[in-house]
Amino acid sequence: MEQLFLNGILVGLLISLISLSVYPVICLVRFFHFAHAVVIAAGAYFSFLLSRCFGWPMGIAIPLAILLSAGLGCLMEVAVYKPLRKREAKPIVFILASLGLYTVLQNVISLVFGDDTKSIRTGPVREGLNFLGARITPIQIITIVTAIVVVVGLLLFMKYTRLGKAMRTVANDANLARVVGIDSDRVIMWAFAIGSGLAGLAGILMALDTDMTPTMGMRPFMMGIVAMIIGGKDSIIGIVLGALLLAFAQQYGAYYLGSEWQDAIAFAILLIFLLFRPQGFLGKKV
């Protein structure tokens, strides 16, 4: 059972990472940015392009891939969302635009790289290391450590930096933020950059563990959104707790009920929260 617990921690922290990557964006723009799912895949494919096609070392390819993912997110904001905001488009228009972006970019990845599985793993498959009776691979340890660093880093960033405070202000009330002299467009751009960079990082970690396909981003993105709703979208700690609850419910549910119930369990939890605690674990009641 140690293995099941470890799997829960690993999956939960990975969902946390994805959820936290979309957190700055959703808090500020207030619509489900579906195209974020393709940024997760793009991070993995950028690292594949740089390391496998250009032959660059992973130490250079990975940071560059994260920067390129951040750039992709900013490009979406500049080219699509900002003009729509200027025109005061309705929320449904933003959602349709983001779905359109997702479809187009996912097809671009398919066209350029093909639909077959690509790998950026550097060595052969090896047995996992024995850790308290469970098996864990080096990349899974890196994923867990990275996710913890991101959670702590994001907490500190949002609480203590000027930009973090500005993000919280814009998220609370964009008009008020404008009155006190905050350039909300600039803050939103930063939210896209940070969120997309983190999405790229999550994609790379996923690809190092389980390889990559062009559609790899959508399912984890949906789980990230569910975790955010469960945890409460205003709280980083709440999101992490939501992700862990979701992951443990899925892992133990799959073990005791059957793996075909994994998604049903996730959405059943979502429904329960929406009905009985819509603000999530630690979200503020409106």
Partner: peptide, 17 residues
């Protein structure tokens, strides 16, 4: 018997069972 969903990449629970 364990089932896998197409397009999913994490089958650790099924394998562990």
């Amino acid at each position: 018997t364990e089932l896998l969903d197409l397009g999913v990449a994490d089958f650790r629970t099924q394998v562990f069972k």
